[in-house]
Design a protein around this nucleic acid. Structure first.
Lengths: 215, 215
DNA sequence: AAGGGTTTGTGCTCACAATTACAAACCTTC
DNA sequence: GAAGGTTTGTAATTGTGAGCACAAACCCTT
């Protein structure tokens, strides 16, 4: 069965909300409650989940623990994913220092930079390698995900290299419309584009009567 | 006329491609060429633009300079937008140091943090203010956009404060499903969610025969 | 054990966005 | 200035996702 990408994009949201509920000690949750928690309609949640099976009980709702496990399994979050960061500037540093990846099973195991002053430095239990060694290193020690935090000018080049090394998922912070071959998955983080589209609404809404932008 | 949000989200893409073309000295571009450049169908581009007017010439294409000016005007990029950064940790530092905002008319004019060691520090021509003074400062010197780079636990609180101060556009880096009242526009930057949805495809695609994820 | 109150899973409908397709308009060349 | 080759703008069609609504299933109380 072919599942719509929008659905896949929502599953992590559900996962996160369920984690919070579990930490609060909740046993059961309804699509209704989950919906208000996330700003999504209950029907949407139920339909999304129904693509994968029947996880709830009528009249009761979903077992938090069980649904969370199911979603982890569906998304492939029940294992560790190895990631490499390319580019250790200010942004790369922030990425290396971010504590949000590890707990979700995403571990940064390599970091690369072209600056001779950076190469060899030890940051967050990692030794920065030379960008020149990117290909050689990744071919020997493959990673699942590449995080691109280099300037726009060389980003496509870096991405091509990653693809050549068999990396099939790329998270790019570079402000370019990068292209990847079929079978490689690319997500872009684009704060400037986000700001620019919000500017439209700022400019065109009469200061109070507008509907909120979808985030 | 009511324009679909998806269309608004694509306009900044067009803007960026046109900027590149202009720097290269190109005078005219067809929807065809722009499309291949961005990975979008030509018809999509033409239709998106037709919501706002008729900017092209049959048999010729679009004048790069003119279309760029039009889009700048439509999106409200022909002015300066004032932004405040809340949270000056590693991420906040990267944001303050990013050179991609200024050239697009987005200027960071205030920065706040709760850490006494950070308060008063001078970074990138800006003096970090105390988080306690957030409300007072913004009420005196309003900003158009708030950039939230604080830990998840206090993010909703910060967002509520921003809204109270009349901030109508918020770019949030906090991993929470933040809610804002109607008339306030919120975009979230969520690298972890992006990774989690890619994990699904990594897990479920047979290593070469899958279609690329939409980015 | 029966009844009232919930909540799920899903067929159906509706809305809207993407694509197709083509007439009209434009440029260039002969 | 006519003809051939492009490319736009848009009407019409197709495709797809979101919302609605309800039967079936479950819990709890009496």
């Amino acid at each position: 069965m072919e599942i719509p990408p929008v659905v896949i994009d929502r599953l992590p949201l559900y996962t996160r909300a369920l984690s919070t509920l579990e930490e609060e000690g909740r046993d059961v949750v309804s699509s209704q409650e989950l919906g208000t928690l996330l700003g999504v309609t209950p029907a949407q949640i139920r339909k999304d989940l129904s693509y994968f099976g029947r996880f709830g009980k009528q009249g009761r709702g979903y077992n938090v623990r069980k649904l969370l496990d199911e979603l982890h399994h569906i998304l492939g979050l029940d294992r560790q994913w190895r990631m490499a960061v390319i580019g250790v500037g200010k942004l790369g540093l922030a990425i290396l220092g971010y504590e949000g990846f590890g707990p979700q099973g995403f571990r940064i195991v390599e970091a690369f930079d072209a600056d001779p002053k950076r190469i060899g430095q030890r940051i967050e239990n990692l030794t920065i390698r030379a960008a020149n060694d990117l290909e050689k290193t990744l071919l020997k020690n493959p990673v699942d995900v590449g995080i691109v935090a280099v300037p726009a000018g060389i980003a496509q080049n870096v991405i091509d290299t990653l693809v050549k090394c068999g990396v099939r998922a790329i998270l790019s912070y570079a402000p370019i419309p990068a292209r990847v071959p079929p079978g490689v998955y690319l997500k872009r983080i684009e704060p400037v584009l986000a700001l620019q589209s919000m500017a439209y609404y700022l400019k065109n809404s009469p200061r109070s009567t507008a509907a909120a932008a979808r985030s």
